[in-house]
Design a protein around this nucleic acid. Structure first.
Lengths: 200, 200
DNA sequence: CGTCTATTTGAATGTACTCAAAAGCGGTGG
DNA sequence: CCACCGCTTTTGAGTACATTCAAATAGACG
């Protein structure tokens, strides 16, 4: 492969242009605010107790965010695949120590947008205020839908629903992470899978 | 009481000015986009299957949003007290049939902002794009925190946490609604309360 | 006071968890 | 190429947290 040090910005531009139209100059300014980063598997991009300084956009690869409880058990809060944003929103907004870790599940190509640059962007190109409003709204809807699923569905139903909605996550995240995301133990998820397999 | 037909807009203006500064004219325009509404207890403000056309701001009183599962059991998604916004975000954003009901828990004074007026507002006063971005961000953080609590805490811990964080909700919402919000049965919540009471 | 709804109680049950161990699955090195 | 190691996934037995169902009690309102 040539172009080793050039970064593929088409994914992120397409994702923005889905909601707001950008001129060439605006696109260029936006890109100039982003910092490319390549990481190998298991790289920590944010850590609990530290202040989260960037929003992360995934060009390619996969990340997860999670908390550790008092027994140091992992609880996966979200996955982020190609085209998704991820951050410890609480820490990023309030610039206070966060509670999440963000870690790569695979080798990944990322773009970092610092809090400072993000606010600059809002001032220089107000359209981005709209863009981030819209994707935050969508994230809120997804988050509420997840709460509804946790309240109304059994463990098995949640797993089936997850498989249908995010089949590609299954290809890069280990099962115990998915169990954690769905709010069940890995052992129980394994039993659910057997139940489904022997039934069909 | 006099001033029967005038509406108290100070609560909502204060809530907006917490994040963006408005001129007199901007405030007046904003207010002109709002439709006051008084409701008695148990009034339905949105219904599953219908398209949600307004964001609702609570001046005074209390609302809840909830879904009905296949057994017609209620699952409370959110409460909204004085100073809070509530809506079926999914339906409002996509203008598709929603899955939530919104209902008053008590006599309430509300302000309705129609989807159309909200978009007008974004065009005429871009600051509102920022305001709604910020409150949506805050709502997202709260929603994710709730997911974390559901994943990491026992039923009793969730109840204690809720009491500390939203003590005033307890004063206007029936216990079975709180049980539902916390993801447990009313019977079990009752037992938790007894356990706590007899312990202290 | 009676009616309606909300809350509490108790017994039986079930869904999902814990703990311990075995099996599978790559990767690495001899 | 096989042996071994570390990690993930599966299995099983016993257990616990929370549910279901039924009924009693308490509160609110006309």
């Amino acid at each position: 492969m040539l172009r080793k040090h050039s970064t593929d910005t088409s994914t992120i531009l397409a994702s923005v242009q889905k909601y707001v139209k950008l001129t060439e100059e605006e696109s260029a300014l936006f890109i100039s605010y982003l910092e490319p980063k390549s990481v190998i598997r298991r790289t920590l991009l944010a850590k609990e107790g530290e202040i989260c300084r960037h929003s992360i956009f995934v060009i390619d690869g996969a990340l997860k965010s999670y908390t550790l409880d008092k027994n140091s058990d992992e609880h996966v809060i979200s996955f982020a695949l190609s085209g998704w944003w991820i951050a410890d929103m609480y820490s990023l907004i309030n610039q206070k120590p966060g509670i999440l870790r963000i870690e790569s599940l695979a080798e990944s190509e990322l773009l970092l947008l610092s809090k400072q640059n993000q606010e600059q962007l809002y001032e220089r190109i107000p359209k981005f205020e709209r863009f981030f409003r819209i994707i935050t709204e969508n994230a809120l809807v997804a988050s509420q839908q997840r709460i509804i699923n946790n309240l109304t569905l059994t463990a098995e139903e949640r797993y089936v629903h997850f498989m249908e909605k995010y089949p590609y996550v299954l290809t890069c995240a280990p099962l115990h992470n998915i169990a954690s995301y769905l709010g069940m133990t890995p052992e129980f998820l394994s039993k659910i899978r057997r139940r489904i397999a022997t039934r069909t």
